[in-house]
Structures are given as C-alpha cells and as structure tokens.
C-alpha cells in the first residue's frame, strides 16, 4: 500500500512544520516551565543544553553508588525526569571510593559528560553568618572536615570563621550535609541560579579555555 506511505510522510512533514511553529512560539514566550534551578550531577552541561540533551532515562540515578540522585517529577515542568540531588539529605560523594564518576559513565548522551575532578561545577556553597556556629562564638569546623578541597574551597580566617572560595568550590554539598545547625548554615546554590549578575565570578581562571563553563559566562 504505497498510499499509506505517502500519507504517513505527508503527515510527518506537516507535523515538522507545525512543530517548528510551536517551538518558535515556545522560544518567543521566553521558554516557560523549565523548572527551578536544581543541583545537577557532576559533569552536567549548562542547564539549557542539559535539558536539551537529557533523554530522561534515569540511568544516572540507578548507577549512583550512593543513591544520591533523584528524578524530578512532573511538578518540575519540562525538567521532569531529569536527575537532581538534595545535599542536606544526601550530598554528592564525587565517587571517591570508585575509579570514575558513575553517573557520567552511565549517561547515554552527553548531558553528563566527562569532566576533571576540579572542574566539576554543580553550584557554590554560601554561608549564612547568622546561623553558622563558627561566626557565633563556637569552634566548629564540620564543613571544613567534610570538604573535598579543605583550605582551598573552605578556609578559616584568623578568628576561625569559615569562608568559601568560589574559585575552588565545586558544589558537591558535603559541607551542607555535615553542617550541624538545623536550618543549615551552609547551603549550595545551584549553578543555574547563579546565572545572573555576578554569575560564576572568577571561574574563568580555573576553567581556562574549556568552553563549557558555567552557563552564560563570558570569555575572559
């Protein structure tokens, strides 16, 4: 039935034109319903490219040896089915007991693509000075002990108050998980939320010409 084939291809062709129109409409209305910024697994592309490349298969979630990752549900809009993690419950352990980052190995597309350990850019730690014990007369270095880059990403000043060096902080969330205060004094801001005025300041020096920096950064 050649008739069938012709009708199928005519319909598909018409559909592509309609789809381009709908896609244009979506882009013209400012790309709504993309979900809030989330903490992505290590090696994730910038948010826009990540949402384009991720096929929502969940293999990274299953491959994670620490059960850190969750899949977003439909309430996250078009980010549904993408992986994220909540550091206060379970931080990214950066597969330090394993040879490689398992989520990246599992990804069938380049949504999670291989990245040097120091170049991981999940987000940045921020310290709330009102809640942090070290700023309020107690000696506490729980976050510093948890940090994979102690003295680089988290360091102490002369008064034993803790500071974040955003050049070195990769946003794994180990500090947030270790923080003993109840509303956590140190929290990770997702990279996606930083893409606005002062986005990813000073990161270019660390990332060099890697081309795949935090989304929206200009070249140095």
């Amino acid at each position: 039935m050649a008739d069938w084939t012709r009708r199928q291809f005519v319909a598909a062709g018409g559909g592509i034109i309609a789809g381009i129109g709908l896609g244009g409409l979506y882009a013209a209305t400012g790309r709504p319903a993309r979900g809030g910024p989330m903490l992505r697994p290590p090696g994730a592309l910038p948010e826009e490219e990540f949402l384009a490349a991720c096929i929502r298969c969940g293999q990274c979630v299953q491959a994670c040896p620490y059960d850190v990752l969750h899949l977003a549900d439909l309430d996250e809009g078009l980010a549904a089915g993408t992986p994220y993690f909540v550091p206060s419950e379970n931080p990214c352990n950066l597969c330090r007991d394993h040879n490689s980052l398992r989520c990246i190995d599992a990804c069938p597309t380049s949504a999670l693509s291989p990245v040097e350990f120091e170049d991981i850019d999940i987000g940045e730690a921020h310290i709330c000075k009102g809640k942090c014990l070290a700023y309020n007369g107690t000696i506490c270095r729980a976050c510093w002990h948890a940090c994979p880059f102690p003295d680089d990403a988290l360091y102490f000043d002369d008064l034993l108050r803790v500071h974040v060096n955003t050049d070195h902080c990769i946003g794994c969330g180990l500090c947030e998980h270790a923080c003993p205060t109840d509303p956590k004094a140190v929290t990770i801001t997702p990279r996606g939320a930083l893409v606005s005025p002062g986005a990813g300041r000073g990161k270019q020096s660390r990332r060099g010409g890697q081309g795949r920096g935090a989304g929206g950064e200009g070249e140095p």
Binding site: G19, I20, G24, Y26, E49
Partner: peptide
C-alpha cells in the same frame, strides 16, 4: 495520520525549542 503528524511535531519542536518533549 495524527500520530505521524505528532511525530513530526515533536521533531520540529525539538529542533527549535531544544526540548525532547516526548521523553
């Protein structure tokens, strides 16, 4: 024919909006 057209719509949408909508 609707489903063949929908297939086209999804591919066209993915090209322009950069979202794999069907997934």
């Amino acid at each position: 024919e609707i489903k063949y057209a929908l297939f086209g719509v999804l591919v066209g949408f993915a090209v322009v909006a950069q979202i794999p909508l069907f997934q």
